[in-house]
Design a protein around this nucleic acid. Structure first.
Lengths: 293, 293
DNA sequence: GAAGCAATGCAACAACTGTTTTAAGAATGA
DNA sequence: TCATTCTTAAAACAGTTGTTGCATTGCTTC
């Protein structure tokens, strides 16, 4: 059985408690989750104790009231269920100031990415990677906030060859490249709620051409999932007004990594070619170059 | 992300739900434990839904009322809390196969982002945010692999107003927008090793115009750091052939978050404007739209 | 257009929540 | 023994809960 968050704290002070407090404490030691799962009155009933005793116990343990006592227990459940990363931070820096915001955002993103390690997501990632590897050509589509993810995937893949085509362009011509697509090709679509209408239309058109659709999206009930052959899901929640796309970018990088590792030798060769080309073009510099503009 | 007890049941019936029910259901799919841990009203608040909608959802799913719905979720927590040791084991399987690669990549990225929480980085982030907030206009520059970061920053900022200009364009015209820049403006430059020559040239030009340069880059010895007024550093090492830009994206999102929180009211107002505009344009859809192409 | 309809927001409801107060009881010590 | 302190049960409290009925909205379907 799982220990509660205040296990040792309660034991320490147990001897100083009155009889009723001890009875309440004993019940909580044995059923820590119940604190978060039922009301105080019901917990008191189950412990054979008056409701007020629970309040008194919480105060005895140094809480301002029972409510905060329960929050502590609820947090433990949340953290235990989610995994491991964010244990330390969670509550200790709940300030609304700006530095606190940055801290909370980073912790949260880090935790979200760590949670992508669950077996289900890993296996979905693998499915996607395999399908991408076997496709003749990969059309990549991501609009608005998802553009960065789609484009980055495409960019990295261009370093490995010319297998991908980025569906984007001025004057609404983005989807036109699909004209040459065949059933041997796949569409990799990235979209989050609210789902861009155009993305869905292009995906639907791809399906009608007999192409497979692979989705990187935010929910099991995303419209993309219903028409996709494979899908990987990622969280987008953030402490700000916006969604976060960092987990999505992580996923796209993982896909690139998987694809490269499928064909290590080929990847290395392509990278060398790109390398020598770019250096012949004088694309990069290690220091501030003499001004030319 | 732990699945709820009714995960599949909800997904099955999702398409038959009304808009509000879907919104509620979506939130529950993503936060199943919360059903047991907070009150219905609070859950509804977090889901952005009326309390009655939760009751209706419960009934829609075949429960007599919300209360029984919650009991079901609480039971799952009770059961899961015990089979917790099993989960701890599975996370330490680091083979050299592909699934292992994905696992290692995600763990590593998650750790890199968590490490951005060190005080030095946080204070640098804050410096950058303050400078961005006081600037008249922000020119955003990121080429090649850094395009995704720069563009995403720009995109989010466009939701908050028209303070940013993205330095990018076809036919090498990217830097031209700087023509109208003045000393009241700043340049936000994103670059990693190897540093794109063009980025450095534009940054240098900005300095000569009297602008401040703010850098998001990968090293204390990045050429950008020497000419930047403020800089934030991020790691790029990856288990693959490529650099990771996920930490950089996280940083850019944090900056957006900080800027929005500097002016919460203004941000909210702008977001509402964007919202009503986009919905008037019929940009988004919740389901696969009837084909138009 | 108009009629019908499902979907949604809102306000009122009783029931229940966690807390505080009160007073009776038990234990302690001189 | 009586006075004092500590403990407990019960009741009263304001606030919140889950629920329901009703009015309004927006959308089909004649």
């Amino acid at each position: 059985m799982q220990k509660g968050p205040l296990h040792s704290h309660i034991i320490e002070r147990f001897d100083d408690m009155s009889e009723q407090l001890q009875q309440a404490a004993r019940h909580i030691l044995e059923h820590p989750q119940e604190v978060a799962l039922v009301s105080m009155r019901e917990l008191a009933r189950n412990a054979g104790v008056q409701p007020s005793t629970m309040t008194r116990l919480a105060k005895f343990l140094g809480f301002p009231g029972y409510e905060d006592f329960r929050v502590q227990h609820a947090d433990v459940i949340r953290v235990n269920a989610d995994g491991f990363a964010a244990r330390a931070m969670q509550r200790d820096e709940a300030g609304a100031n700006d530095e606190g915001l940055a801290h909370r955002m980073l912790q949260s993103i880090s935790g979200q990415i760590a949670r992508l390690c669950e077996p289900e997501t890993l296996s979905r990632l693998n499915d996607l990677a395999v399908r991408l590897a076997t496709a003749r050509r990969v059309y990549v589509l991501g609009l608005r906030s998802c553009h960065s993810v789609a484009w980055h995937f495409h960019y990295v893949m261009t370093l490995l060859g010319e297998k991908t085509v980025h569906l984007d362009g001025p004057a609404g011509t983005g989807g036109d490249a699909l004209i040459r697509a065949t059933a041997d090709d796949v569409l990799l679509a990235v979209s989050i709620n609210p789902y861009s209408r155009y993305t869905l239309e292009v995906a639907e058109a791809a399906v009608e051409k007999g192409m497979s659709v692979l989705a990187i999206t935010d929910s099991e009930v995303s419209p993309l999932v219903t028409i996709a052959e494979h899908a990987v899901l990622f969280p987008t929640e953030s402490h700000t007004f916006f969604h976060t796309l960092t987990p999505a970018l992580a996923i796209s990088e993982v896909l690139c990594g998987l694809l490269a590792s499928h064909d290590r030798k080929g990847a290395l060769k392509e990278l060398k070619r790109v390398d020598s080309y770019l250096s012949s073009m004088n694309t990069y510099s290690a220091s501030i170059p003499r001004r030319k503009i």
